[in-house]
Write a protein that binds this DNA or RNA. Structure first.
Length: 631
DNA sequence: TTAGGGTTAG
């Protein structure tokens, strides 16, 4: 039986800790305490017990109970109580009406909320009722309605307070509403509410959610009173916008001023560590989690699994995963994805099947992990099977993100025509990633004609994505089509696009040895390339699925070129003693194919090789970099 | 009446 039924049917038991009271006022007092501590379940139980003990709720009781109905999305209970309120004659009270409006809006019944608002009776609507309706409209994505009522409350000469602005600004968290959000920012200044930290935090969040990170940072720097929520909003904002290194910088800054992080901070930091492959910072965060007693927070556990898995420490990720009692679909997805990106397709698929056996229903994201795992391990037919099951077995409609995985899967296997047919048969509009996946496949299989078509399409959708220009340019370059290379470069220049060069470095005897991809300018270059050739042929021999999926792996390993991290590793191998760990720093994320290479080389030479993010590196922002400067 | 959160290929 659920809580709603329990409360309606009066079968709730009074918990020991709630035993008190002999008048409605005392019951109300206790309800308020519980609501303050956000213990809504206990509040509902207490309310039920109050009724069973023969005490009638009064004007002060209802707001707390409506709040509970809003939290637990109990519209049935809410409307029954509403009827009860009308019977008891309390309805005109503005506080009750406000809590009713809020409850209906949280339960997505805006129409009912509006009816309550309009039935004013002898009272007029106060700022709090307007606030409830305004935030209710924005909660239900009706920003224009919210603005209408904002104007109306101004016409009525009512006071606009910080809660009004919070309600309005939180409705502008999509880029399409940025303009409105900026006008509201000016309103906040006009009303003298810009010094209110909750309003400023809300504005900050609005900017980051709209992708206006620099704007958010300006506001952050200007704020005189930064509380934990401010720091979290900025850290999560960087994290959500993929600015992982900014996250780590800000986290360090936060700690330097002795601001204690909470679970929300650590989530943002862990997610960035995962994106950068920054395992050592990630394990520091793990220590912090234990130290602060957040060890059982399921969000953090999932973030830790994801972080270790993405950093290549699958053993550690698996250990955390195994000891997690309540594994959600997110925990499973993180683990499956971890095996997938490191080339363990079979294990990923087994884990997926195990998840289904455990009664966890896969969602769209889980399928993205599964399909990409198939793609990276060359398990083409398995991937097609899972894609098919997505709809037939689980009733999930594939989105463009699934099609892009499938195009990648078919494309890598050389089945370019099937990939093209798949795109043409898509029920949803292909996005940039779908055409990008086809372009990537064309690069591997050197199909210029199809690549040009894919490039044309991808440019209509993502003209500012440098990666696609580089792919096409490299394809032309492989085919010795210098005219093509030039054409792409001119296009990039015209559109003012610059590629931040991927580079890696190793610290050796107090000096930094830095390498770009395909770099031949290092004094030890000859020896390094000889060693690299030898390692590449050994890697091809031992690649996990080399025997049955030989063709794909051959293409994978020969098609990937001389990445900067490969050169840095070889330099480390040539110059350091056997047994010592080789630590390579990289300014960009290590690509999946390189991860496999690093892992296998590590096995061949029996050395621990760590490739980490170069977070201290700031030399590349203008796109200029010379290796010679660092020797 | 109220601001911050985990999993996603290329």
């Amino acid at each position: 039986m659920n809580i709603q039924q329990e409360c309606l049917e009066g079968e709730a038991k009074e918990p020991q800790s709630l035993r008190l009271t002999n008048s409605t006022t005392l019951w109300n007092y206790r309800l308020r305490e519980l609501a303050k501590q956000r213990q809504f379940l206990q509040a509902l139980t207490l309310y039920r017990h109050m009724l069973r003990s023969g005490y009638s709720p009064n004007t002060f009781t209802f707001p707390f109970v409506f709040k509970c109905c809003a939290v637990f999305l109990f519209p049935l209970m809410g409307s029954q109580l509403h009827a009860h309120v009308i019977r008891t004659g309390c309805q005109p009270d503005p506080y009750i009406r406000t809590s009713l409006i809020s409850m209906y809006c949280k339960c997505n019944l805006v129409h009912n909320a509006r009816k309550v608002f309009d039935e004013v009776g002898p009272w007029r609507n106060l700022t709090i009722s307007y606030n409830a309706l305004i935030s209710g409209y924005t909660f239900n994505s009706k920003i224009l309605d919210a603005l209408v009522f904002f104007c109306r409350m101004r016409e009525e000469g009512l006071l606009v307070d910080s809660v009004t602005m919070l309600g309005l600004v939180s409705g502008c968290t999509v880029p399409a509403h940025l303009g409105i959000g900026m006008c509201l920012h000016s309103c906040c200044v006009k009303f003298g509410l810009d010094g209110d930290s909750s309003v400023e935090n809300c504005l900050l969040t609005m900017y980051v959610k709209c992708g206006e990170v620099e704007h958010a940072r300006q506001l952050f720097d200007k704020m005189t009173e930064k509380n934990l929520i401010t720091w979290n909003a900025m850290i999560s904002g960087y994290s959500q916008n993929g600015l992982a290194r900014h996250v780590l910088e800000l986290y360090r800054e936060m700690k330097s001023i002795n601001m204690c992080p909470d679970h929300v901070t650590l989530l943002g930091v862990l997610s960035s560590c995962a994106n950068l492959g920054a395992q050592s910072i990630g394990s520091e965060v793990e220590g912090e989690i234990e130290y602060r007693g957040f060890g059982s927070n399921p969000f953090l556990t999932n973030a830790l699994i994801n972080m270790y898995a993405r950093c290549g420490n699958l053993m550690k990720a698996r250990a955390i995963f195994d000891r997690t009692a309540d594994k959600s679909v997110i925990s499973w997805t993180a683990m499956i994805g971890g095996y997938g990106i490191h080339g363990h397709g079979e294990i990923a698929l087994n884990l997926f099947d195990e998840m289904v056996k455990c009664g966890i229903r896969p969602d769209g994201t889980a399928f993205v992990s599964v399909l990409s795992a198939c793609s990276h391990a060359g398990l083409t037919d398995e991937g097609l099977k899972y894609f098919d099951e997505m709809e037939t077995k689980y009733g999930l409609k594939p989105g463009p993100e699934h099609y892009s995985c499938l195009v990648d899967l078919l494309g890598r296997a050389g089945r370019l025509k099937e990939a093209m047919d798949l795109i043409n048969s898509m029920k949803v509009k292909p996005d940039g990633a779908v055409w990008g996946a086809l372009l990537g496949a064309c690069k591997i299989h050197k199909n210029i004609e199809l690549a040009e078509l894919a490039f044309e399409r991808v440019m209509e959708l993502e003209p500012a994505n440098i990666g696609y220009y580089v792919l096409l340019s490299n394809l032309y370059s492989d085919a010795k089509n210098m005219e093509g290379v030039l054409k792409v470069r001119v296009m990039m220049r015209e559109r003012k696009l610059k590629k931040e060069p991927g580079c890696s470095y190793v610290e050796y005897r107090g000096k930094v040895h830095l390498f770009l991809s395909g770099d031949t300018s290092h004094p030890q270059s000859d020896d390094m390339y000889k060693m690299l050739d030898k390692l590449e042929s050994l890697v091809k021999e031992i690649h996990p699925s080399a025997e049955n999926e030989g063709r794909r792996n051959e293409e994978l390993l020969t098609g990937m070129g001389v990445h900067s991290e490969k050169l840095a590793i070889v330099f480390g191998l040539l110059n350091t003693k056997p047994g010592t760990e080789i630590t390579v720093m990289k300014n960009l994320r290590v690509c999946v194919d390189c991860h496999i290479f690093i892992k296998l080389v590590s096995k061949i030479v029996n050395r621990r090789i760590v490739v980490r993010d170069a977070t201290r590196f700031h030399h590349f922002s203008d796109g200029v970099c010379s290796c010679r400067d660092y020797w």
